[in-house]
Amino acid sequence: MNTTRRLSLAAALLLAGPATSFAQTTSPWNNKQCAVVLTYDDAIDVDLDNAVPALDSLKLRGTFYLIGSSPVVARRLDEWRQAAKRGHELGNHALMHPCDGSLPGRSFVTPDNDLSKYTVSRAVSEARANNTLLSAIDGKTARTFAYPCGDLTIGGVKFYDQLQKDFVAARGVTGGLQTPAQVDLTNIDSYMINGQSADYLIDLVKKAQQSHTLLVFLFHGVGGGHSLNVDLKAHRQLLRYLKAHEKDIWVAPMVEVAEKIKAYQLSAGKKQG
């Protein structure tokens, strides 16, 4: 090989290096800059009245974490089924939404729904019962879990350890942006939103784009309906930004993103092994 060809080959390899690295970094995000997951907790009326129509209008899909015992599930069963048919995930937020009443600021926890009084087997059984209910609604078997109140343990034992075969992943409540390798699929980071501006929401997305990371939003009320709330206009502006930049941002339900991350981590583990 002559000197000119060697130099040309070396230049080509140098140019290909960063592109290959970038593609590997972003491959779990469908070869886009980042992934954004929009999650909505508690199965409340505004999910169906405000959030789902806003997403549908822009052909975006989200994850709705349903409490099985919520009257809004029973009363609006067909609407949840139709939402699932349009590509939204019906996630599992437990049957009774038990929270640890022994922690500070938990006066809202009733004796019947106090996770600190649960056994691990009860928590596991109720989560599985909710899966049965959700499967009856949407006909699906793959879905994700969201910890009620972000509580992970009962008597120091992580109850989700017994549920890992029942779910693709579980979402927590700790804010953070993570690369595919950093994501803990048993406790995925998320940003809980309560009153923040559209600028704040969009800035988080821009940071995820720059760092090629996963960004999960955790909403409750959208335009009311819950003490934790995001303004309708702010929510709409966020969705419009995501839609306007969809060539760079992968917006998908949690179950799809988690499946991609799981495959990525398994592949990376095999390569290291």
Rank of each mutant, 00 (worst) to 15 (best):
A127H: 01
L152S: 06
A208V: 02
D184I: 04
A23Q: 06
I202D: 10
M192H: 10
L60D: 02
T119I: 05
R61E: 13
L177S: 02
R240D: 15
A16D: 09
V36M: 00
V120Q: 11
L60R: 01
Q162H: 02
Y200W: 15
V168W: 10
Y200S: 12
L115C: 05
N229S: 14
S227T: 13
K271A: 13
N131Q: 13
R76L: 10
A198V: 05
V120F: 10
A170H: 04
S70K: 04
S197M: 00
P18Y: 05
S267H: 14
K206P: 07
G91D: 06
L152K: 14
Y191L: 08
S8V: 07
V222M: 00
L242A: 05
A54K: 00
A208S: 06
P53M: 11
G91C: 05
I202W: 09
K32M: 11
I188T: 00
P180H: 07
L58A: 07
V72Y: 08
G62L: 12
L7C: 02
L215C: 11
D138A: 03
L48T: 05
L55G: 03
D47R: 03
D166C: 02
S116Y: 02
S21E: 09
H212M: 08
R61H: 14
P18H: 11
D151I: 03
V230T: 09
Q272W: 08
S125C: 04
A35E: 00
D203H: 12
Y65L: 07
S21V: 11
L115V: 07
C34Q: 09
W29P: 00
E79D: 15
S57E: 14
Q196V: 13
G221R: 01
S227M: 13
L266C: 06
A94W: 02
R128L: 12
V205W: 03
Y118H: 05
N30G: 08
D114A: 02
F108N: 15
A181W: 10
F167P: 06
N194D: 15
K247N: 13
P71C: 06
I137A: 06
L218Q: 10
D248W: 05
L15I: 12
R6F: 07
D151H: 15
A19S: 06
E246Y: 03
G139D: 01
A74E: 14
L214F: 04
K247D: 14
L232Y: 07
K260L: 05
R86Y: 01
T213S: 15
K59Q: 15
S116F: 04
G101V: 01
L77A: 03
A54F: 02
G17S: 13
Q210K: 13
G175S: 14
K243R: 15
I249Q: 01
P53G: 09
T63S: 15
G139M: 01
K117S: 12
D189C: 12
G105F: 10
Y147V: 01
I193N: 10
A263Q: 11
Q24L: 14
H235L: 09
R143S: 12
F159N: 03
V120R: 10
Q196H: 13
L38R: 04
D49P: 01
D151Q: 05
F108L: 15
K85C: 01
L60W: 03
K165I: 00
P71E: 08
K206D: 10
L152R: 15
Q178H: 06
T174F: 02
P53A: 07
V251L: 08
Q182F: 04
F64Y: 14
Q182S: 11
H212Q: 11
D41M: 02
V120A: 08
Q196S: 13
L218W: 05
